[in-house]
């Protein structure tokens, strides 16, 4: 399967993401620059973390309005998988591709630490490698990861199984409602998550719990 990583000025976990995709799939992803309007033919588009355009407006707000996002939206509508991590999640929300919003952390501080994630839905294209209810380790690093949705939206995404990851064991680092750490769209091909699975994929990282997300999405789950 082929993948692509979006590179926008200010994103800074693009190199981490490229390394993770390359190590897990054995193939380097193609990169997409902010001005591109033609997205190459790939199975997975990843928007990595960082501070696109400095996040000087609302996080992800400027990026969501760049031409490249229209192109990504069009691909998603055709069923191509899209994964947004951290700033990528914020961008997908700002682009209207996922429900809800991310607010400043409840602590009002940036937080970088390892947390626990519960795989709330293991029947997705991104989580097939895990079991439902499995608890995995994963790092977070963000200032604005406090997920919020109104009661109606919340009811709908909870009911549809769109909540894919939840902070577990009391490790919610940001005050997210219902401990939500990752959500997908109704169709199930667009996933946004605050934690950084790309930073926990090999022994140098002290574990590889994050690998399953990429292995699932790239269809390279070990038998």
């Amino acid at each position: 399967m082929k993948s692509a990583v979006v590179q926008l000025p200010g994103l800074n976990r693009d190199r981490d993401m490229i390394a993770a995709l390359t190590k897990i799939s054995g193939k380097a992803p193609v990169t997409i620059w902010q001005t591109e309007t033609e997205i190459p033919d790939v199975d997975l588009i990843v928007i990595p973390g960082g501070f696109s355009y400095g996040d000087y407006l609302r996080c992800g707000a400027i990026a969501a309005r760049m031409p490249v996002m229209q192109a990504i939206k069009a691909k998603a509508e055709k069923g191509v998988k899209v994964l947004g991590v951290c700033n990528g999640f914020q961008i997908l929300l700002e682009a209207g591709m996922l429900p809800g919003a991310l607010m400043r952390n409840a602590s009002l501080r940036f937080v970088c630490k390892e947390i626990k994630l519960e795989v709330a839905n293991a029947e997705t294209e991104f989580t097939r490698a895990y079991a439902k209810g499995q608890i995995i380790r994963c790092p977070v690093a963000h200032h604005d990861g406090n997920y919020f949705a109104d009661a109606e939206t919340l009811k709908s995404i909870e009911g549809n199984g769109q909540v894919v990851f939840r902070y577990a064991d009391g490790t919610n680092p940001n005050g997210s409602i219902n401990d939500i750490a990752g959500v997908m769209n109704a169709r199930g091909n667009v996933l946004g998550m605050m934690p950084h699975p790309e930073n926990l994929i090999e022994s140098a990282h002290g574990g590889n719990d994050g690998r399953g997300i990429f292995a699932s999405a790239l269809d390279v789950i070990a038998a």
């Binding site: 976990r13 940036f110 970088c112 630490k113 930073n199 140098a204």
Partner: peptide, 14 residues
């Protein structure tokens, strides 16, 4: 203090 710093970015922190 250090949890306010990104200690993991670049994926090489041992």
């Amino acid at each position: 203090v250090y949890e306010q710093y990104d200690t993991l970015i670049q994926g090489n922190s041992l």
